[in-house]
């Protein structure tokens, strides 16, 4: 949620120093200042986001091949055809995204709660521990699970030798392995916003609740949980989108029938060179995720998605 925002065009007060005569030029300049300040961020968005987006959107409507180039023919069938070909992977990705996000909330909330309310003076140390895995590359961390969970590896090998699991049992190349990998990789993005929200909860509110004879459960349900909802919302927004479009986890930890839509898109761009199909799938995914997020925002009663995400 670090994307630059365009600052509101309010003239800053006191921009003109004492003892100087505020001429018209000065007034104009101070009125324009916020726009100047917003310029780098706006340019950044236009050049590095808007331009590629429009180019991709355009590409998704073309026909052709790499030898003859892709001609713009407004070929909307790219969308219908690709979705009908890959709807299984599409639905699977969203399903994995939902399951993984729910798991993340279930795991991250207690962690964030514990750090916020029981962390004491060591809070920042615990947060640092949480972020520590990020010092190692994402792919490397995921690949290391391949070693840990190998069929005869350090975890399953002894279990099999002890006869606790059957010889054919395996974790890798299964749906739980992929969902587990997704959950593992994105969980800090869930913990942090929830932590930030919980950290802001004034402990005196809890004391007040207890004074009014609320039980611990009731105090949590009526005071802490509602106040931390924006954090959960932000966490879901931040993680659900990349989780649903991820392709690394399915590639490294998945089996033959765990392909996610991200893998299909990657394959279209890098292997089969069907750029228009890949672009169409990307936009379809983006549209579905956006609609999903707005529906979610509506259900949660958050009027403004951006506002909630930014908190």
């Amino acid at each position: 949620m670090t994307a630059a925002t365009v600052a509101p065009p309010t003239a800053p007060s006191g921009a003109v120093g004492p003892g100087r005569h505020p001429g018209m030029w000065h007034r104009l300049r101070s009125r324009l200042t916020p726009y100047w300040l917003a310029l780098p961020g706006t340019l950044w968005l236009v050049i590095f986001f808007l331009v590629p987006m429009v180019a991709m959107l355009s590409l998704s409507l073309t026909q052709g091949d790499i030898l003859n180039g892709f001609q713009q023919t407004f070929h909307w069938q790219n969308y219908t055809q690709s979705i009908s070909d890959y709807h299984v992977q599409f639905v699977r990705s969203l399903w994995y995204g939902v399951v993984s996000t729910v798991l993340q909330v279930a795991i991250a909330y207690p962690v964030a709660y514990w750090i916020a309310f029981r962390g004491g003076s060591r809070k920042s140390f615990y947060l640092f521990l949480l972020l520590l895995p990020f010092f190692v590359s994402f792919v490397l961390r995921t690949t290391s699970w391949n070693f840990i969970l190998a069929d005869n590896g350090i975890l399953l090998g002894p279990l099999k030798n002890a006869g606790l699991v059957s010889q054919n049992f395996h974790i890798l190349a299964t749906t739980p392995a992929v969902i587990g990998g997704l959950t593992y990789n994105y969980i800090p993005f869930m913990v942090l916003p929830i932590y930030v929200a919980l950290e802001r909860v004034d402990p005196r509110l809890l004391e007040a609740a207890y004074d009014l004879y609320a039980s611990r459960v009731r105090a949590f349900r009526r005071v802490v949980l509602p106040l931390s909802l924006p954090g959960i919302f932000a966490g879901v927004v931040i993680t659900f989108v990349p989780v649903s479009s991820d392709y690394v986890n399915a590639h490294i930890l998945g089996g033959p029938t765990n392909t996610m839509i991200g893998n299909v898109i990657q394959n279209m761009f890098l292997t089969t060179q069907q750029y228009p199909v890949g672009a169409a799938l990307s936009f379809a995914l983006m549209a579905v995720l956006l609609v999903g997020l707005f529906a979610y925002a509506r259900a949660l009663g958050t009027e403004d998605v951006l506002e909630a995400a930014a908190t």
């Binding site: 949620m1 994307a3 925002t5 968005l45 986001f49 808007l50 987006m53 429009v54 590359s137 994402f138 792919v139 927004v237 989108v241 990349p242 479009s245 991820d246 392709y247 690394v248 590639h251 991200g262 898109i265 990657q266 890098l270 990307s282 983006m286 956006l290 997020l293 998605v305 951006l306 995400a309």
Partner: peptide, 16 residues
């Protein structure tokens, strides 16, 4: 394959 993951700037999408 390519190691970088496709991430979308959510706010930017809305603006676009």
């Amino acid at each position: 394959r390519g190691m970088t993951q496709r991430r979308m700037g959510r706010r930017g999408i809305l603006k676009a």
